[in-house]
């Protein structure tokens, strides 16, 4: 550096050097501090994303040579019944639990946010607890609870005079079982998100409404819901992504079929990707699945923002 300063006036090249040195001296810290992210981003995200794109135009088992297939993989996806089924399954599972769970989470949050109930921390903890548990662990327990012959659920049904139900054996019920497990695990999380939103709503609004003679229900409908719109949207978007990327829940509940479930009822796009990549060694095809999956999710999320986020408060 001293050398550069000394010769700063004699050579134009070293003037650039000085400027560079000054730049480094001035900005080294922030660049250094953000560099871990960008290094990791380049190695573990950007490179894989690009490599994945290349792979999706090839046929490759991970061992032999890569064979160029052009758009073949994508063309085959259009006729892949399992792939199409996986999206239909996700959509059905979404409808099965997301509206109900979101509504319940909002109501619970409103209850726990008001002074209406005692021991609120206790209820909050109980409802939130499932979220911190490993899905694998509770998945096996749920498989036990859902068991047709030895499960607690059917035992209760029989006790009240109802017939046994094939929870894990019939396609529609298999999806319902997955939905139940997902709801159980994520209800508390959604409730907490809603609580966070509710705490940002000024209390005066409710006081004003009460003075105007509005009941609890009225203020819930006319104040809470409109003001909570962005938070609800956020929760729903997260649930959408979560539903389409379900893996562990069906994988554990339906181990016999590696998560696909009866008649592929619980096959999700991510499970399909997993089977093709690590079960059938179709790395190229799996990459095409990944790209289409990404595209669909992107469009779905964008659509939800556009439809419901536009005039939200």
């Amino acid at each position: 550096m001293a050398y550069a300063q000394e010769h700063a006036h004699s050579q134009p090249a070293s003037r650039t050097l000085v400027r560079a040195a000054g730049f480094v001296r001035r900005y080294w810290a922030p660049y250094l501090f953000v560099s871990p992210f960008f290094l990791m981003f380049a190695a573990f995200m950007l490179y894989p994303v690009l490599f994945s794109l290349v792979l999706s135009f090839h046929e490759w088992n991970g061992v032999g040579p890569m064979v160029w297939r052009g758009l073949d993989n994508y063309a085959r996806l259009a006729h892949d019944q399992a792939f199409i089924q996986s999206f239909i399954n996700s959509a059905i599972i979404f409808v099965m639990y997301v509206p109900a769970m979101t509504a319940l989470a909002l109501v619970l949050a409103a209850l726990l946010n008001s002074a209406y109930l005692r021991a609120r921390a206790l209820w909050r903890a109980a409802i939130f607890l499932p979220y911190v548990t490993a899905v694998v662990a509770v998945g096996f327990t749920f498989a036990l609870l859902f068991d047709r012959d030895f499960g607690l659920l059917n035992l209760v049904l029989v006790a009240v005079g109802l017939p046994k139900v094939d929870w894990l054996l019939l396609p529609a019920l298999a999806r319902l079982s997955v939905s139940t497990l997902v709801t159980w695990r994520w209800l508390g999380y959604n409730m907490v998100i809603m609580l966070g939103g509710l705490q940002n709503i000024p209390g005066e609004l409710y006081e004003a409404a009460t003075i105007d003679g509005a009941g609890v229900l009225r203020s819930f409908l006319s104040i809470t819901i409109p003001l909570m719109r962005p938070v609800i949207l956020f929760a729903v978007v997260l649930s959408t992504i979560g539903t389409f990327s379900l893996f562990t829940e069906p994988y554990v509940l339906f181990q016999g079929t590696s998560g696909a479930g009866p008649a592929r009822a619980t096959l999700t796009p991510v499970l399909h990707l997993y089977h093709n990549a690590f079960g059938f060694l179709k790395f190229g095809y799996a990459s095409a699945i990944a790209y289409v999956y990404f595209g669909v999710l992107f469009v779905l999320t964008a659509l939800q923002w556009k439809l419901f986020g536009r005039d939200g408060g």
Partner: peptide, 18 residues
């Protein structure tokens, strides 16, 4: 980068780690 789902990078990352 938040938009990119992990699943898209899974296969190439596996190859990389290999």
């Amino acid at each position: 980068s938040l938009v990119i789902p992990f699943e898209v990078t899974m296969v190439p990352l596996y190859v990389l780690y290999q």
